Computed example of a mutant assay.
Amino acid sequence: MRLKKQKRHRKIVRFYTACFGFRQPFKVLCDGTFVHHLIVNHISPPDNAVSTILGAPVKLMTTRCVLAELKSLGDSYSESLKAAGKLIAARCDHERRKSAEACFVEIIGENNPEHFFVATQDTDLRKKFQEIPGVPVIFGLRNALLLEPPSVSQRQFVKSSEEERLHMTELEHKLLSKRQKNRLTSKETKDSSDENEALEDQNLGLQAATNENNAKRRMVVKDRVQFKRNKAKGPNPLSCKKKKSQRQPNPASEKEDKDAGKTVRNSRKRKRSRKGKKLPEMDG
């Protein structure tokens, strides 16, 4: 049972933190009836008991009107007055003293701007705060403390506020239309300026190109690579034989050569034998 109660309380706290912006440490506004219930049922220390319900650190607070009301009730509430005097005093901006119920209603207002948890045993006050959005209520049951779940009106308020967030208000629509107009005008001016800049860049590029061409003509610089033509090469000199030197003919030497050739030819003549011719003469 304790686990189920803790889960239920955590779910309720998560609802208020997500939908209404409650933050730790939680501020709990206690009235005289709640403080008296803690003392009668011996629930101490009270801050630990409340923090276990909410699952987070808490600050227990009360008002001057609550202390004045407990003081007016006499000696039977003296212990409750001492315990309430130890709590943090919340600021209530009214000159004359009011009842605790009226003081709490004024502090909470229409939407609970200070994000208070209200701890009370008054059933009428609990029902009244259930109708105000964003007001969680804590009450005691014997020696246990409980956190009331959000009412139907509070859940309906959250649902309607979420639907309103999905749609734009008139002010937001006007602001959006103004922004769109400003963007269109700025875009048109930007496009015109971009066109002018593009024309200027083109002109600068043409001027730079003409200047480069003129400079190249003056300097006679050849941009293209000129390839060398392959000419017919001669034979490898190392693989060729050396030429023989031709001597000039000498007439005297030529004659000597001719005479030498005749002598050689004469010497080479065959001598014929005449033995056969002499024989018939001898017989005659």
Rank of each mutant, 00 (worst) to 15 (best):
A102M: 04
F34I: 04
R97N: 08
T17D: 13
A100E: 11
L204W: 05
F129R: 07
T185Q: 14
E131W: 04
A215N: 12
N111L: 09
F20E: 07
P113V: 13
A102S: 06
A18M: 13
K71D: 11
H94Y: 12
A83K: 04
L199D: 14
F117I: 05
R8K: 14
I107W: 00
N266E: 09
T17G: 13
A144Y: 07
A56F: 06
F104A: 10
V118I: 11
S186F: 05
C65A: 13
K258F: 13
C92D: 03
G55I: 07
A89Y: 10
D124Y: 01
C103T: 11
P46N: 08
F157D: 07
K233D: 12
L125D: 03
K262E: 13
K11E: 10
G140A: 13
A100F: 04
P25N: 08
K277W: 02
T63E: 09
R14L: 05
R272D: 03
V221F: 12
N230Y: 09
N182M: 07
N111E: 11
E197P: 04
G32T: 08
V118M: 00
Q130L: 09
F15H: 12
T52L: 11
F116G: 02
T210A: 14
H36P: 00
V40H: 03
T210N: 13
A198C: 02
K128F: 08
K4P: 02
P57R: 14
S44I: 03
S44D: 08
C19S: 15
K159A: 09
L176S: 14
H115P: 11
V28N: 05
R229H: 06
K262N: 11
K258P: 00
K271E: 07
Q154S: 11
E131V: 14
R270F: 03
E79T: 12
V118P: 01
D191L: 14
N236L: 15
K275Q: 05
R91T: 09
D122A: 01
K86G: 06
S273D: 10
E256A: 02
G109P: 02
R224S: 05
K278N: 10
G140K: 04
D257K: 02
L38T: 03
T33V: 05
R268C: 05
V13P: 01
A215W: 05
V221G: 04
S76Q: 13
F20G: 07
A89H: 11
D122C: 01
K228N: 06
P133L: 07
R272G: 04
P57N: 15
D223W: 01
C30R: 03
G55Y: 10
S160I: 06
S153R: 08
V135N: 02
L166P: 03
L176W: 10
V225Q: 12
E95S: 15
N214K: 12
D122Y: 02
E101Y: 04
G205C: 15
L54G: 02
N196I: 06
D201T: 10
R97I: 14
N213R: 14
F116P: 00
S193K: 07
K82N: 12
A215F: 08
G74T: 15
V152W: 01
T263P: 01
K262I: 13
G284N: 03
K7W: 08
M219C: 05
N41Q: 12
K71V: 03
K271M: 03
L166C: 04
C30L: 14
V50P: 02
A198W: 07
K187D: 09
E195F: 05
E188V: 13
L146M: 09
E195S: 12
V118Y: 01
